[in-house]
Simulated scan of single mutants.
Amino acid sequence: MKTTDTQLTANILTFSQRYVEQYQEKLQHLPLVEHDEQWPSPCLQNKFDEKLMCWQPVEMQPALSFANLEDALDLVIHPSIVHYFTTIFSENIPASCSEGHLQLLFAWSEDDFARLQENLIGHVLMKQKLKQTVTLFFAVTDDDNIMLTVENESGEVWAERVGCKPHKKIADSLTDFIASLQPDIYIEPETD
């Protein structure tokens, strides 16, 4: 298990670095996010203009814990989802795979990590209420009704409609899935 966890961490770090490098290559600056003083993050770098800040993913040092989530749900969370959400702080990262376009979800800060855990608890409680297999989301797709999840028992990656059972297996593991991704550098068209 330790080798798989190490490989997943390496894949996340490599993918996020590739995203930043390709973004910089295309636009000659770090990725941008709207500046919000109420929503600080260790990802924020420098001011780009009056409204935007440059950002980049940063490794969590030390990694945060999922213990309170596991205690709240009385459930052991699959190690891959724990490693996924405790490797980096980051804005969502657009990516593409053979199935299409998606946004990888990450915690922006420690406060956002707490909010993320609350959302995961709500998702798991819904799955339990519907008597469905427990899954944990980690990405959203271009279709607002479909998210990507990790099946908690097996660690497999699935596509899943909100409130429904997973309907399409995407990868055998989160490690394999992250390794298959390409950064998606989409530039918003300028509007006046």
Score class of each variant (00 low, 15 high):
K2F: 15
T4R: 08
Q7L: 14
L8W: 01
I12E: 03
I12F: 01
T14G: 10
S16V: 00
Y23M: 06
P31S: 10
L32Q: 09
V33L: 03
H35A: 15
C43W: 02
Q45H: 06
N46S: 11
F48N: 07
E50L: 01
E50I: 00
L52N: 04
L52T: 00
M53L: 05
P57Q: 08
V58H: 03
E59W: 07
M60P: 15
N68P: 02
A72F: 05
H78Y: 10
H78T: 05
V82N: 02
H83Q: 14
H83P: 04
T86C: 14
I88A: 09
P94S: 05
S96E: 10
S98F: 06
L102Q: 04
Q103Y: 08
L104M: 05
F106I: 01
A114G: 08
I121K: 03
G122K: 06
T141V: 06
T141I: 12
M147R: 05
M147Q: 10
E156K: 02
V157K: 01
E160R: 13
E160W: 11
V162W: 08
D172F: 01
S173H: 09
I178M: 15
I178Y: 04
Q182D: 09
P183N: 10
I185R: 00
I187A: 03
I187F: 04
T191D: 05
D192S: 12
